[in-house]
Design a protein around this nucleic acid. Structure first.
Lengths: 186, 186
DNA sequence: CTCGAATGAGACTATTTTATCTCATTTGAG
DNA sequence: CTCAAATGAGATAAAATAGTCTCATTCGAG
């Protein structure tokens, strides 16, 4: 039982290192990933059969992390605006584990991820629709469009944090206010 | 003189084909690009010494296209809001030639592109600042942040058009209204 | 039409990355 | 401490891609 736990931890650390490196260098080779994780290439292959397997595990964990953040945000609770704010505040800190997704094209088409993608998107879509029904969010935009824009706004925020142009602690607030209020003066 | 023109046309067609294919398949090999452009690999190498050279030319043309769109938008003319609207309406149709930039990591670090990037960003930043000074745009956000969010919102819009969830003709209007007004009800 | 330049198809080589394998060393459970 | 399992380093093979070269064919200016 402990063996399994140890292995899982190791696997977890490896995925952390990989997503960290891939966020900076999306084209990193497996050898570079192994080096960055301070393990031998052979060991990497003992945990993942190949690059595809690693990327898939990485993406699955990213989606799981997002699902977790969504669950913790309790999107059904309170006003839709407050719920969206909680969601964004929960998602912004995940950048390290999710940002690499943007730069990988092979993942978008993977069938196993379509379900995970839908599972993460559905509750957010529901929240947006709830907010539209309650008059908190604009109803002249489709919920899908809003969620899609939100996704990219998140990537933009993560990148801004990553390149230092925005402080990590400010990112969530900036994102919420930009997303909800737009850049035009009201 | 005509020889040069012919060669330039051919080069132009080749770049068009490449950006078109790379938008769909960012990891396309040079052989695939050559096939897609319906030319031999050898000919591709006669126009571009290698992948780096091709990607650089592609990116430079993308920036030139953007600069052109900016110039045609006459950002200094009229209200900042109207100017921003003109800009977005000019940029949205360029997706085919620019979208691939998002999926390439090697370009971000290329020194020759830093200047082009700055050249395209400067007039847009100036427009945002003008709008902030005139009270049209929010002044509690930095112009850099606004432009950065706008960049990603554009990529999001291009992708939505590309995957069919938004009609090409609606994209610009949607983007302008989302960007300026946000998703919250005012 | 004619000729030189440009092209395409594909053989071929070089380079890079992935994946496998061996074996000495390390690790940690008991 | 002891031993079986896990690891790391590197050799090696395999695969994919990049890049070069040759030569017969096509193209287009004049």
């Amino acid at each position: 039982m402990q063996e399994t736990t140890l292995k899982d931890n190791r696997r977890h650390d490896l995925l952390n290192a990989a997503s960290e490196l891939l966020a900076q260098k999306p084209a990193a080779s497996l050898a570079e990933i192994a080096d960055y994780a301070k393990i031998g290439k052979a060991t990497l292959h003992r945990y993942f059969t190949g690059r595809d397997d690693l990327m898939l595990a990485l993406a699955q964990r990213a989606f799981a992390t997002i699902e977790d953040a969504i669950a913790k945000s309790e999107l059904e609770r309170g006003g839709a605006t407050e719920a969206l704010t909680r969601l964004i505040e929960a998602l912004v800190p995940l950048g390290d584990k999710v940002y690499f997704l943007l730069n990988d094209s092979t993942l978008a088409e993977h069938p196993d991820l379509a379900a995970a993608d839908h599972a993460t998107r559905a509750p957010v879509l529901a929240l947006i629709r709830r907010g539209q029904a309650s008059g908190e969010f604009r109803a002249d935009l489709t919920a899908e469009w809003i969620v899609h824009q939100m996704d990219y706004a998140l990537f933009a925020a993560w990148q801004a944090v990553y390149d230092g142009s925005v402080a990590r602690k400010d990112a969530a607030r900036l994102l919420v206010t930009t997303l909800l209020g737009g850049v035009g003066m009201r």
